[in-house]
Design a protein around this nucleic acid. Sequence first.
DNA 1: ATGTAAACGGAGTGCCCCCTCCGCTTTCTG
DNA 2: CAGAAAGCGGAGGGGGCACTCCGTTTACAT
Lengths: 216, 216
Amino acid sequence: MRSAETPTRPLRRDAERNRDRIVEAARTAIASEGIDVSVEEIARRAGVGVATLYRRFPTKEELIDAVLEDALGEICDAAEEALELEDAWAGFTSFLERVFELHVRNRGIKDVVTDDQHGHRRLDAARAELRPLIAEIIVRAQSQGTLRADFTKEDVPMIFWTGGRVAELTCSVAPELWRRYLGLLLDGLRADAATPLAHPPLTNEQLERVRRPGAR
Amino acid sequence: MRSAETPTRPLRRDAERNRDRIVEAARTAIASEGIDVSVEEIARRAGVGVATLYRRFPTKEELIDAVLEDALGEICDAAEEALELEDAWAGFTSFLERVFELHVRNRGIKDVVTDDQHGHRRLDAARAELRPLIAEIIVRAQSQGTLRADFTKEDVPMIFWTGGRVAELTCSVAPELWRRYLGLLLDGLRADAATPLAHPPLTNEQLERVRRPGAR
DNA sequence: ATGTAAACGGAGTGCCCCCTCCGCTTTCTG
DNA sequence: CAGAAAGCGGAGGGGGCACTCCGTTTACAT
């Protein structure tokens, strides 16, 4: 799952240690200050100079990728565990809950799932791993008749965007408010609450374009 | 509703005209590029120098206030018209729809309703005007038995935050996708879909703190 | 018409941020 | 243990931004 190791000589011991410190510092810095933390701040937290950081990660985005890759991994774990629950609706809701808990613990996460700006090769790979899991969570709940039939996997990002926004805005004031929001939304996602929707879901291409505003 | 006119001499004719141009340019600039447009860009669109802009608005935030005040006014209009509909549920939904339409037309709006960073005196006044209207929209729909009883006016910002995020992210790709999101959410807001919620709504103080992260 | 205060514009200032350069230090190899 | 290569940090380049200074121009009152 991790990036292919090129057969170059391994890092020197101090470099290895610093690399770990940098990623860890970036994780906590992003978690507490959001994706806009300055590179200086991350380096300061890691106890290294900026040049050291830049030797390991040629650009700030690459560093962020490394952090967010782990976060996506956690989401994958949540999806896998959701599929182990017998009650598909419980699996569906537990998956969403786990993701939102992650959001609160790590403010930066929303920028993984949303802005795909920082979507490089490895992130794409993790996302590819996640996609079929999500599809399975959905069809399972639909075939058990609990999740509304017109809900699609392309609707999931929409839920992450919105719930993530609640979590992000309120995490310092009412860190669990997202549970209220999710409750309201889930009541609308149950099969027996369904009313025809006015608009179709995004297509995959549209989703790509939302995620990469820059891409031509 | 406008700010009190201090009894100073009125603006010279050219100054008055430029002021209008600046506000209008700021409106369209923010609508198309978001709240992060540079002051230079706004001045360029208005056909004036930056110094002219700064003479009229001592800070970028003051200028943004002037723009957003109008936007809030439009939201008030939407609320008033919603109250004229006989069917309270239709009023409730039409209010939300109008606000989201505004979001799409003017990307900047989300930053009024959300970040209260730019919340100065006049904005506060407009907000105070809006609050009772929203309360009335809600209790009316609840007393008609269509809106779930545990929904409160403090939940409305949450809807704006979330729907605004959908509108903002997808406005260039699927400008009406928010209708799908709103459909899902409304299905969860109907009284007969209601299931007990896991978390209470925000209190007013919490709402204030969400809006003014900076305020001590 | 004309004096004057108000208004104008664009060059300039200071700040912050991403990133690089380069002389010094540490680790690894034989 | 010694030489070489890899790693290190901090000063500084370059760019973008909000905002200001000041010599010139414009509108208005008499």
